[in-house]
C-alpha cells in the first residue's frame, strides 16, 4: 500500500512539526505554559516546586499584554500531585486570542536566583499559522464557503485528471503570485500610499506568474507543460487567484501568513475540485432528470457540499 506509507509519512512529519515548538521552549524555571480552558492558564515547571509559594495567588500577577495596568483577578492556584504543574484559575473568562503576561513575584531567591519571573502566555504562533492554513483549506474553503472561483470550478471538475492538474497549477500560481504580491504590497504600495492600485497590481502579478510558469515549464519540463499548460490560460480570469492577495492586503498578513493562506486556498481549491470531479464522474452515469443534466446538477451537488461544509463552521483548532 504505497499510498498508506505516504500518508503515514506525512502524518509523522506533521506531528513532529507540531511537537517542535513544545520541545523548543525551555528557559529558566518554566518548562511550558499554555491556556487551559477559558478561565485557566497552565504553567509547567521544570522541577517540582514549593507548594507554599507556588500555590499562592498572591505570588502571581497576570494581565493582558495590551492592558498592563489592569490585573486579572485570580480565583485560585492549584498544583497537581507531581508538584510540577500549576493551574491558575481566574474569576472572569480570559480572552485567549490575546497574549497574556504572567509575573511571578516575591519568589524565594534560592529557587531561581531571581525574585521575579515574567513570561508571556499566548497561543502558539505555529498554531496560528496552521489555523490560517486549515481555515483556508477547510473551514473557510474558498469554493464551498466563500463562493469564489466557481466558473473554473464548474468548468474543470468533469474529470479527475483535469481536476488534479488544474488544482496543482492553481496552487502553484497562487502561492507564487501571493508572495510576490506581498512583497509589492509591503514594500512598494503601502509606503507610498498606493493602496488603491491593488487590483491592477495584483492582477498584473498574477498574469506575470502565469507567464513565468508557462515559460519555465515549457523549457524545463515539456511533459508537465503538456499536461498543465492548457489550464494556465484559464488561471488568469479567476477570482480565487486574485482573491488571495486581496485578502492578504485586507488582513495585513506577514510573509509566512500569506504563504499559509495561499497554500491553504490552493489546497482547498484542489480538494474541492478533486472531490467534485470524482462525484461528477459518478453523476455522469446517473439518470439525472433531463433539464438538470450538466451544470444545474453540478450546482446542486456543490450546494450539498456546502451544506456538509457547514459542519466546519465555528471550528477553532488552535
Amino acid at each position: 500500500m504505497h499510498r498508506l506509507t505516504m500518508l503515514m509519512r506525512a502524518l509523522a512529519v506533521l506531528t513532529l512539526a507540531l511537537l517542535l515548538p513544545v520541545l523548543a521552549q525551555a528557559d529558566g524555571l518554566i518548562a511550558g505554559k499554555s491556556f487551559g480552558n477559558d478561565r485557566e492558564i497552565v504553567v509547567t515547571f521544570k522541577a517540582p516546586v514549593d507548594q507554599a509559594v507556588f500555590a499562592d495567588p498572591a505570588h502571581y500577577l497576570v494581565y493582558e499584554e495590551s492592558d498592563p495596568d489592569i490585573r486579572l483577578e485570580l480565583a485560585d492556584v492549584r498544583l497537581d500531585s507531581t508538584g510540577k504543574i500549576a493551574f491558575l484559575g481566574f474569576k472572569e473568562p480570559l480572552n485567549t486570542t490575546r497574549p497574556h503576561v504572567v509575573s511571578m513575584i516575591d519568589l524565594p531567591a534560592a529557587v531561581t536566583g531571581r525574585t521575579v519571573e515574567t513570561f508571556r502566555v499566548a497561543k502558539p504562533y505555529l498554531g496560528y499559522l496552521l489555523s490560517i492554513l486549515v481555515s483556508a483549506l477547510l473551514i473557510n474553503n474558498f469554493v464551498f464557503t466563500k463562493y469564489l472561483g466557481l466558473c473554473v470550478f464548474f468548468g474543470t471538475s468533469k474529470r479527475r485528471d483535469t481536476a488534479k492538474g488544474m488544482g496543482v497549477t492553481f496552487t502553484i500560481v497562487m502561492v507564487v503570485s501571493a508572495l510576490m504580491s506581498w512583497f509589492f504590497y509591503q514594500f512598494v504600495m503601502k509606503p507610498h500610499g498606493l493602496d488603491f492600485l491593488q487590483i491592477v497590481v495584483f492582477i498584473g502579478l498574477v498574469s506575470l506568474t502565469v507567464q513565468a510558469v508557462d515559460t519555465i515549464l515549457r523549457k524545463v519540463n515539456p511533459v508537465l507543460f503538456n499536461a498543465f499548460g492548457v489550464y494556465l490560460v484559464l488561471v488568469i480570469a479567476n477570482c480565487v487567484i486574485i482573491a488571495v492577495p486581496l485578502i492578504m492586503a485586507n488582513n495585513e498578513y506577514n510573509f509566512l501568513e500569506t504563504f499559509m493562506l495561499a497554500l491553504g486556498a490552493g489546497g482547498g481549491f484542489l480538494l474541492a475540485l478533486y472531490m467534485m470531479a470524482s462525484v461528477r464522474e459518478r453523476m455522469e452515469l446517473a439518470r439525472v432528470p433531463k433539464s438538470f443534466k450538466g451544470v444545474p446538477i453540478a450546482f446542486i451537488v456543490a450546494g450539498q457540499f456546502a451544506l456538509a461544509f457547514l459542519g466546519f463552521s465555528g471550528l477553532s483548532l488552535f
Binding site: 470524482s278 466546519f312 471550528l315
Partner: peptide, 29 residues
C-alpha cells in the same frame, strides 16, 4: 473534532456528510 473544537455539540451528522463525498475517491484508491 467537531465535538471538541467545532461550533456544534454533536458532530457525527456533519462528519458523515463530510466523509460521504470521499467514498467514491476512497473506492478508487
Amino acid at each position: 473534532l467537531i465535538r471538541l473544537k467545532g461550533g456544534y455539540p454533536e458532530g457525527i451528522c456533519y462528519a458523515i456528510l463530510l466523509m460521504n463525498p470521499l467514498s467514491p475517491v476512497l473506492d478508487r484508491w
